[in-house]
């Protein structure tokens, strides 16, 4: 096994252990297809499954009403990639956006990002989130799909120290470590996913060698 294969194995195990879905893709286009397919097959508002019919106070109910179409946000992509994803999305009647995410704070269906690094030891993604749209895409989406280039995998955070420190030195800088979906155990220590952030995290390991 090459070093990268070992890292992939460890990363996959650790990420799955915190309930992330891990798949492999050979090219970016496959990641786009995966995303569109996932969005196409998911309920318009996944919260339905978790009690949308449950009564809310008027303010919360209002915000919820504002949601209609299925939306994918992919703020970090370059023009060509964005175009490709947009074509795929349209074919399925999905809306793709790249900015103005503050207009969708009730929630979007999927946020798609290409992350900067992966830490195998803990199944962690490292994502430069200086761009506010990138930040929001990974916070208000019901599903976060993260593409992780395999060449960007490292064993531990210590192995990434130089790169991380460079990210910290950016003025300003907003760097996110993301490990699994948003979670809480605040009621009777029972684990529940998706308390404020995504309910699901899908990680697509991209063979970029």
């Amino acid at each position: 096994m090459t070093n990268i294969d070992e890292l992939v194995t460890t990363f996959t195990q650790k990420a799955q252990a915190v309930s992330a879905v891990v798949a492999e893709v050979n090219e970016l286009r496959q990641a786009f297809e995966y995303t569109v397919d996932l969005c196409d097959h998911k309920e318009a508002c996944q919260l339905l499954l978790a009690g949308c019919e449950a009564p809310l106070s008027p303010a919360a109910g209002d915000l919820c009403q504002r949601r209609r179409d299925k939306i994918i946000a992919a703020p970090g992509l370059d023009a060509a990639d964005y175009q490709a994803l947009d074509t795929l999305s349209r074919a399925k009647g999905l809306t793709l956006i790249r900015d103005g995410l503050r207009g969708y704070l009730a929630g979007i269906d999927i946020g798609l990002t290409v992350v900067d690094y992966g830490i195998a030891e803990t199944g962690t993604l490292v994502l430069n989130s200086n761009n506010e749209e990138v930040r929001l895409a990974t916070m208000i989406s019901e599903i976060h799909v993260a593409v992780l280039p395999k060449s960007r995998l490292r064993q531990s955070s210590t192995d990434l120290e130089t790169e991380l420190e460079a990210m910290m030195r950016m003025r300003p800088g907003y760097t996110a470590f993301i490990t699994g979906a948003s979670r809480t155990a605040d009621i009777e220590r029972v684990l529940a996913l998706g308390v404020h952030g995504p309910l699901e995290l899908h990680i697509l390991l991209w063979e970029d060698r």
Binding site: L164, M168, R171, P172, G173, Y174, T175, F177, T179, G197
Partner: peptide, 11 residues
Amino acid sequence: SYITWITGPNE
């Protein structure tokens, strides 16, 4: 799940 590193006021 999250560790957030913030240097300075972001956009």
